[in-house]
């Protein structure tokens, strides 16, 4: 537990919550990133613009953070190319089939006490933990 960063985690989490509240207050929508991102391409044409603007905000966040003088952003991705591609496909298909991801079910759904979101979060946490815990012994990462 020596790597725990409770202050930055709580502050960052509060900003994520603030964004979810903003999207509800402004657009009346759930801030589920898989749904917002997918809809930027696959939603009705009139429903795409705000999604693209939201996604652009996400992409530019690290750039603006660094421009404002934020400290260097740690980034370590250990997975090799086959794992990156398989993982991306599973995340894309799975989040659409299951109607949401960490944000839509995890943050927005749980805060609404949605029973679907409770089941979803329990299952993707368990699957994620089982996979991440077993992958090192199996793939020798």
């Amino acid at each position: 537990m020596e790597n725990l960063t409770p202050v930055s985690a709580t502050l960052g989490g509060a900003l994520i919550g603030l964004s979810a509240v903003m999207l509800m207050g402004l657009k009346g929508r759930i801030a589920g990133i898989s749904g917002v991102f997918s809809g930027a391409v696959f939603a009705e044409p009139g429903d795409r613009g705000w999604r693209a603007a939201f996604v652009l905000g996400l992409v530019l966040a690290p750039v603006i953070y660094l421009a404002l003088g934020g400290p260097a952003i740690a980034f370590e991705l250990e997975a090799n190319w086959p794992l990156v591609i398989v993982g991306g496909l599973l995340v894309g298909f799975g989040t659409r089939l299951g109607s949401g991801c960490t944000s839509g079910h995890g943050v927005c759904g749980l805060s609404r006490l949605s029973s679907r979101s409770m089941v979803s979060v329990a299952l993707f946490m368990l699957a994620g933990m089982a996979t991440a815990s077993l992958i090192k012994p199996v793939f020798g990462g």
């Binding site: 794992l83 599973l90 799975g94 699957a127 089982a130």
Partner: peptide, 8 residues
């Protein structure tokens, strides 16, 4: 499926 991809 999502959880497995996330964990990978």
């Amino acid at each position: 499926l999502f959880g497995i991809g996330w964990g990978l």
